[in-house]
Design a protein around this nucleic acid. Sequence first.
RNA 1: GUGGUCGUAGCUCAGCUGGUAGAGCAUCAGUUUGUGGUACUGAGGGUCGCGGGUUCGAGCCCCGUCGAUCACCCCA
Length: 428
Amino acid sequence: MPDFQTSPGMRDILPPESARWRRFVHVFAGVAEGAGDGQVISPLLEDLGVFQRIGDATDVVTKEMYDFVDKGGRHVALRPELTASVCRAFVQHRPLTPWKVWYAGSQFRYEKPQRGRYRQFDQVGIEVLGADDPYLDVEIIALGWEFYRALGLQQVNLLLNSLGEPADRARYVQALQEHFEAHLDTLSDESKVTLQKNPLRVLDSKRPQDAPLVAAAPKIAEFYSEAAAAHFAAVQAGLTELGIPFTVDSKLVRGLDYYRHTTFEYQGGTLESAQNALGGGGRYDGLVESLGGPPTAGIGFALGLDRTLIACDDEGVFPAPANDVDVFVVDTTGGLQALQITAQLRDVGIGADRAFENRSMKSQMKAADRSGATYAVIIGSNELDAGEAVVRPLRAERALNPDGSPSDGTQSTIPRSDLLDHLKKALS
RNA sequence: GUGGUCGUAGCUCAGCUGGUAGAGCAUCAGUUUGUGGUACUGAGGGUCGCGGGUUCGAGCCCCGUCGAUCACCCCA
């Protein structure tokens, strides 16, 4: 065992998985920027207060924060989510609205780690501030949907709900509280605790014992104001217009207190229930104001990298890309030739690798095969003396003869001076 | 934070009721008068997560601890 390893819930992302992560963000950036969203890069560390505004009934804030006092006496925290950071940035810089941004980055929550749930975890997300148009809700939800499709995921379910306006939500919470308190004896002990902190969250209970009571609970829809009902109806109509299937789930409350009106969650069809939330979001029209800004509408979502990639694995889509090089140089004369040739190839944009430590021909050919290169360039003492090089196709299905015809797999000996042109042509 | 399961070579794992460690893959080298992907031979690599205890003797039993994993909780 090594003396050191990563802290609990934190890990190294190694190749080739790391390349997959990079591509994941790249695909997301393409989707977001295609809708006119620009990237915002905010600090990992913020004043603790930024996150406390998320709400004191939110575990993310009260129990799971990595917070500490820095050398200047500031009470700071590693960001547990990015929505609050984006709103803080909005208040600080006051860009023109609607402000449409996307982000990608690590977040930190001190939780007990599990598969698909880490203390340092990565999300990509979109936030739009300064517009309360229900069709914006539709655009946001559709962008997430489009992203999953871009990855190749088929089995994603969209759950949709509305928490109404703050007053609606407050009346509903009270009704819920009364409902559960009237049946306290059948409620699980855990849910009794939850009830004290946040009655909405009791709807989220996965304990079978609570199921009947939850099913019998009043529904949020009965409490919508006219405006809230109209907003929600417009969102549903918009999604239907775009042909995006969704399920209205009145129990979808989500854990962050700042949500109002539209909330939604993308669930993976193949994942275990504990980790099946691939991403989610909703409206948070009061958050900017609570951070000291003007009353500003806001909506956004965040998608977890890990869970989405697990879902991709389950469906066999979006595999880690191969990091294949174009040419592998085999040099049995000491390595200087390989040094020159790889440098020349890279200089003209051809990916090139080689072996080190002057290994045997066989060993170097093995390495060439492993590298995924289309061609091996072989330099032995004969070639060196004659000023020649052997070009050997390693992947017949990809390789071409110099004249452009498909390779029959045989190698050719060519003058060293023609090597670069030969390979450029063969790889074009 | 609470509870269950697990922790043996780089990787995946075997190791019966306790007698001081094995396989496959991978790596390296050779079989081949210079040429890889299939074959054969050989080599290197492990204080059995860590720390205590029981025992003549522990990878196997007990306690603790760290980590992973699963459920609850929470959420992405």
